Computed example of a mutant assay.
Amino acid sequence: MLRHRHCGRLLIASVVGRLPLGMVPVTLLLTARTDGHSLATGSVLAAMYGLAPAFGLPLLGRLADLRGLLVPCCLGAAAVTAALCMVALAGTSHLPLTVACVVLAGAGCPPLEGGLRSLWGAALPDDAHVRTACTLDASAQQIVYVAGPALAIGIATWLSPAAALLVAAVATLAGSLAFVSARPARKWRGAAHRRGQSGVLGSRAVRPVLISLVFLGATIGALDVAGVAVAAREEAPWLAGVLPAVFSAAGLLGGVLFARFQGAADARPRHLALLGFMFTAAWLPLLAAVPAPVVLALAMLPGALFVPLLTAASLTVTTLAPPGRSSEAVGWGSSAIRLGLAFGTGQAGSLGGHFTIPLAAAAGCALLLVVHTLRPAAATTAACQAGYRG
């Protein structure tokens, strides 16, 4: 897939442009502490940044479907760059201004993920290549959430948290410009749609899958809290950071394997339900009280299944969306994941960080995917085929 013209550039530019999603939350924590604020204040700022894209991405994705990728990507990149530079230069001493900038930086995230998903059909020759590209993209997202925090902490330690925010701003701007200046991005326009046509949320076929993504995101939010709880139980502070990293690394490997061995497009509804139940079962061994190294080994199984499940569900959302709404559909999928992350973190924190929380969230995800699978097969298949042709 990467040998095809423009594909490598589009993928790399998209990952670079999304790198701040992994860098900014931890940098806001460090900036707030440096300016004398409490950890709670820094956590609130990081949470606001994490939730803001859930509202901005669908809107910018809809604008991309209507006007092409140039305007929303450049508009979003400019907003993010200005907001992060403001926080870097002014600090967090004036909290109302900081909150406004943090929300703008989150809500303005350019729709690179949705744009990339929409471009694969124009840049690649057939559906098999498109499915492989989408899986590779979902796997590459793990790099954002592993390399992003590490890069931010390294820059903040070597230079300052303000320098890390400036690097995040440059990454957004550089990645977005490299992305939209590629020929497929300049030429792409969303498919025509009928006036008065319902949006993505109006599709009965899409709604169960979107809600399942909320539960899927909740498993990751709960995992972070469970890592902290297990680290305290085992008196191994390093486990809190290593557990999510191991989970993400396993996801990267699982996504690559899934791209190699996944079946035909018309089998995706069955794959969705099967992957959902496998993902749920993979959390069961983590309920046992085992030493820290064993916890890491056991976490690799749900990690390896996370990216294949995320890829299959995201592809289903895109293909079942109404014509001309692909970027908006990806935006809603990203919003669902982010809302789930916040919900899972909050619930797991209030319930003590047990692995039963990600297990319950995974079970909810699987049940909703079964609801989707049991919908009339003919309608679902026709919608998938129409989506792939789009």
Rank of each mutant, 00 (worst) to 15 (best):
A226I: 14
G221D: 05
V209F: 00
W283R: 08
L243K: 06
F261Y: 15
G263H: 07
Q262S: 09
F261A: 12
A282W: 01
A205P: 14
A205Y: 13
V256P: 05
G221Q: 04
L301R: 09
H271A: 15
G227P: 02
L287K: 13
V230S: 08
V295A: 09
A236N: 10
F215N: 07
L284D: 10
A222W: 07
V246L: 03
L284K: 12
V256E: 14
D266S: 11
A297G: 05
V214I: 15
A292P: 02
L252G: 06
P269M: 03
L275H: 01
M300C: 12
V290K: 12
A240G: 02
L286P: 12
A264M: 07
L257T: 10
P302E: 08
A264N: 06
L274G: 03
P291Q: 11
P285E: 15
A267K: 06
L223V: 01
R233N: 15
G263S: 08
L305T: 06
L257F: 14
G202I: 01
G221F: 03
S212F: 04
F258H: 11
L239A: 04
V242S: 11
F277A: 04
V290M: 09
R260T: 09
A222P: 13
P302C: 02
L274Q: 04
V230R: 12
A240R: 04
R270H: 06
A273W: 03
A231S: 10
G251S: 05
L287S: 12
L298D: 10
A240L: 00
A236H: 13
G202Y: 06
V294N: 05
L253R: 01
L298K: 11
V225Y: 03
L210A: 07
G251A: 06
A267C: 02
L253D: 03
V214P: 07
V228Q: 05
M278K: 06
F277K: 00
A245H: 04
P269A: 01
H271Y: 14
L296Y: 08
A267D: 10
F247P: 00
M278E: 08
T280D: 04
P237F: 00
L213W: 11
A232C: 03
P237N: 03
L286M: 15
V214F: 09
H271G: 13
Q262T: 09
A229R: 08
E235S: 14
A249W: 01
P237Y: 02
F258T: 05
L275A: 06
P269C: 00
P308I: 02
F277V: 03
R268C: 11
V246Q: 07
Q262W: 10
A232G: 13
L301P: 10
A259N: 07
P269L: 02
P302G: 09
L223C: 05
V230P: 00
I220V: 15
D266C: 08
G241K: 00
L274I: 06
V225S: 05
L252D: 08
T219M: 03
A292K: 06
A226Y: 08
A292Q: 05
P244Y: 00
G255H: 04
R260V: 11
S203E: 15
E235V: 14
A273H: 05
M300K: 00
A273V: 07
W283V: 12
P285Q: 14
L216H: 12
P237H: 02
L253A: 13
D224L: 15
V307T: 09
P237W: 02
E235N: 13
G221H: 05
L252P: 11
L216T: 10
P302D: 09
A288K: 09
S203W: 09
M300P: 10
A249Q: 01
